[in-house]
Structure formats: C-alpha cells, structure tokens
C-alpha cells in the first residue's frame, strides 16, 4: 500500500504558443498513477488528453509543474538519459499504429528490444513470444500494409509490451478501429494488464470503452473534472 506511485504529476501545466495566443492544453493537473492500474482518460476532443498522455509517457515536458516517474524527477534528466530511461520503462500505442512500414510484424516488435541493446537472436525470440501472445503467430513476417487495423494495433501492443515496461501509454488506440476491433483491443490491453501487471493508461472519447477500467479520469479544458476509482486492484 505504501509503495510510491509509478507516476506523480504535481500541478502540471502545458502551454503551446500559437503566434500571439497561448493555448493551455493542460492547466494544472495533479495526478498519481499507481503500479498495476488500468486507467482511462476521457473527455471531449481538445480537452488535453493527448497532451497529458505525452507528459505521462515522458515524450513531452511540462511548462510548469513536475512529473515524477518511479520517484525520479524527470525534469532534471538530460535528453539521452531520459530517452534511455523511457526505453526501459514506457511502451507506446498510437492512434495511427505508427508501425514502420518496411519492417515485418516481428521486426517491428524487435525494434524497441534492439534499441534497448538486445542481440538480434534474443530480440527475435522475445518478439515472437509477444506476437504469439497477442494471437498473431501467423503474421510474424507480414508487413503492416498486409494486416487489418485491428491486427496492426495488436502488433503495436506487442511492440509496447516487448520491453516489459512499467507503463504503457495508449493515446486513442481505438480511434481508427471499428467498434468490434475497439473492444478487442481494449480487452487485450486489459488482459495484458492482468497477466503481466503492466500499468496501462489510455485515452478515448468513446464512453462505451470504459466498462472494464479501474479508474476513469474525465478531462475538460485541460483540467481533471472527475476522477473515479472503480476498483482497488492497485
């Protein structure tokens, strides 16, 4: 119970300069994310979900406030150190899948492993295991353009989980999928969360996908409007 939160956001602001005007996409968010949770951030378009996810995933830095990860103040880290930190701890699933088109499914999953320094043999073995786990054992050598949207997002999930991260950040992972595939993807993430204990944070603007989560954070104009904890499994 007393373990520190995986991610701690303290009064985080993120402002963007658009010519003369300043847009405050995240306007003072304080949020603790605990290990093992399955958390959804929802809210209307433009409410700052993506910006918040980028900050949680450590690919963007706050204009004001602090983001602590595993008790480390990430603001103080140099770019290379932060990049390496991220490569061992955070997996990403994107709305547009963002798979490398010239690499096969397995090679895509191998990529973060090799970036983290694994040998090609080890990376290949682990990538294969991951793809089997998401049910794509028949598509190891398929290129992304030979796969359906749902299959692509499963490859992306396998890629995110390959490095055995602490946290997977998924910004609108279902926005480009039909409802059947959307449910499949969310269920798969939930399954991985339970199986591996990996913390998941994902965003959606579709309330129907929120049935299965531990916690729902409703965002509005860059502020947390509602924070519902539904089950205490973290």
């Amino acid at each position: 119970m007393a373990s520190p939160p995986l991610v701690q956001m303290r009064n985080v602001h993120r402002r963007f300069h658009l010519g003369e005007t300043i847009v405050e996409a995240v306007a003072g968010v304080s949020l603790d994310i605990h290990t093992g949770g399955f958390l959804a951030v929802w809210g209307p378009s433009g409410s700052g979900k993506s910006t918040l996810m980028n900050l949680i995933g450590l690919i963007d830095a706050p204009s004001e406030g602090e983001v602590w990860f595993e008790g480390v103040d990430t603001h103080r880290m140099a770019d290379n150190a932060l990049t390496d930190f991220r490569s061992h701890r955070v997996g990403f699933v994107f709305q547009n899948f963002n798979l490398i088109p010239v690499l096969s499914a397995r090679e895509n999953v191998m990529l973060p492993l090799q970036i983290a320094g694994l040998s090609p043999q080890k990376a290949s073995t682990q990538a294969t295991e991951m793809l089997v786990e998401v049910g794509l054992e028949r598509f190891l050598t398929s290129r992304p353009d030979q796969l359906s949207g749902g299959q692509r997002q499963r490859v992306a999930i396998a890629r995110a989980l390959a490095i055995q991260p602490k946290l997977v950040v998924a910004d609108e992972p279902t926005a480009n999928l039909d409802s059947e595939n959307s449910h499949m993807v969310v269920n798969m993430m939930r399954q991985m969360n339970r199986l591996h204990g990996v913390t998941f944070v994902f965003t959606t603007h579709d309330p129907r996908l929120l049935d299965n989560v531990d916690r729902k954070v409703l965002l509005h104009d860059g502020r947390v409007e509602q924070d519902e904890i539904l089950s205490c499994n973290s």
């Binding site: 990403f92 983290a116 890629r159």
Partner: peptide, 16 residues
C-alpha cells in the same frame, strides 16, 4: 518525420 517521432518515443536516441 512521424517514424522518427515513433523511434524516438520508443527509446532511440537523437544520435541513433
């Protein structure tokens, strides 16, 4: 560009 962003997000350094 988007691929570069993806690679950087999943841990590739600038030098990479």
């Amino acid at each position: 560009t988007r691929e570069i962003g993806t690679l950087r997000a999943i841990g590739l350094r600038r030098s990479g």
